[in-house]
């Protein structure tokens, strides 16, 4: 208890920063689930591709010095755009290769699930054995090792007693909230967003009403992937290191966050991500870091016992225009 009070503020700040990244990745799971009722297990690899693109861009421009202040914000926005495009594109490609053929032939959802797991393993190994060694000029057997891209000069932007926030954590939190607001507005106010909601609600009727399902699915994967790309840029801002399986644990946590908040619900992904991040950090301060994952999943089970549809419950298809 003594530990907890001591570390309350640092844990809260770290929990919100980590939770923001969970939330952005969770969006991809939640959107695809909302539209297709499919858990896209390869989404964690879409995130990984984003981190690799960020390191690639840093290498390309030969970034060796550290940046702070507004320069850093500009760099992060640039990286987020590039990673967002790369991850979004990869997600669309993934859908074309791994899911669309199955959907066309009316395969069961289980088949798509297996295809998702297969795609996830395939992408991991492809990166570990071919892409990473090639892209970063490493010997082949070193492809499984982490690669770094250091570029962040950290400083404290807020410092009130124990409540200390560094610039990277602030950018992550603000960036994630901003992306959520933009996406929320997009889904609720645009024509394409209406199509997404209609498809989520009732695909058959949506088709009768003139919605092009394939276009909607492509858009869903593109948006979810782009969010993972933005998450990857923010992740790199904080940790500056990634490897071929960086998405695995983070993907599980993000999926947990999506379920916790209410799967299929965009705002739920944000709430779920932040709650999960806070619970992990507070729990670690209270019981020791070795219990971090145990605490996270215990909370998930507890929430689902009393609210089976997650914290916010309401899902994408029920959102009103």
């Amino acid at each position: 208890m003594h530990n907890f009070i001591d570390q309350f503020w640092p844990s809260t700040v770290d929990g919100l920063a980590l939770g923001s990244i969970y939330a952005l990745v969770a969006l991809g799971y939640t959107m695809v689930y909302g539209v297709l009722r499919l858990i896209n297990f390869a989404h964690s690899e879409i995130f990984m591709i984003g981190t690799m693109v960020v390191i690639g861009v840093l290498n390309l421009f030969d970034v060796t010095s550290l940046y702070g202040g507004f320069t850093l914000i500009a760099i992060v926005i640039g990286l987020a755009v590039v990673a967002g495009v790369a991850s979004g594109g990869s997600a669309v490609l993934l859908e074309l290769v791994a899911y669309r053929p199955l959907r066309r032939r009316g395969a069961s959802r289980l088949a798509a699930l297996i295809s998702a797991i297969g795609a996830s393993l395939f992408l991991q190994q492809l990166f570990a054995r071919v892409v990473i060694p090639q892209a970063f000029d490493l010997p082949k057997e070193k492809g499984a090792l982490p690669v770094q891209g250091h570029f962040v000069q950290r400083n404290h932007v807020i410092s009130i007693g124990d409540f200390v926030v560094s610039n990277d954590k602030l950018i992550i939190f603000v960036g994630a909230i901003l992306m959520m607001v933009v996406l929320d507005q997009f889904v609720n106010r645009t024509r394409l967003g209406r199509g997404i909601r209609a498809t989520a609600q009732d695909p058959q009727t949506a088709v009768l009403m003139g919605v092009n399902i394939d276009r909607i699915v492509t858009a869903t994967f593109a948006i979810g992937g782009a969010m993972a790309g933005v998450a990857a840029a923010l992740y790199m801002l904080r940790f500056e290191e990634a490897k071929y399986d960086v998405g695995f644990l983070l993907g599980i946590k993000a999926f947990t966050a999506a379920v916790l908040g209410g799967i299929g619900n965009l705002r739920g992904a944000l709430v779920g991500g932040l709650v999960l991040g806070l619970v992990e950090m507070w729990g670690s301060a209270l019981f020791g870091t070795e219990w971090q994952h145990v605490i996270a999943f215990s909370i998930l089970i507890l929430v689902l016992m009393f609210r089976p549809t997650g914290i916010l419950g309401e899902s994408l298809q029920q959102a009103r225009a």
């Binding site: 570390q7 640092p10 992740y235 992990e280 301060a285 020791g288 870091t289 971090q292």
Partner: peptide
């Protein structure tokens, strides 16, 4: 003392304890 999960990337709770 504290422990970390080497596969995770965020060690901040161990870091906060070390700081305290």
């Amino acid at each position: 003392e504290d422990a970390i999960d080497p596969n995770g990337s965020d060690f901040s709770s161990a870091v906060n304890k070390a700081k305290a």
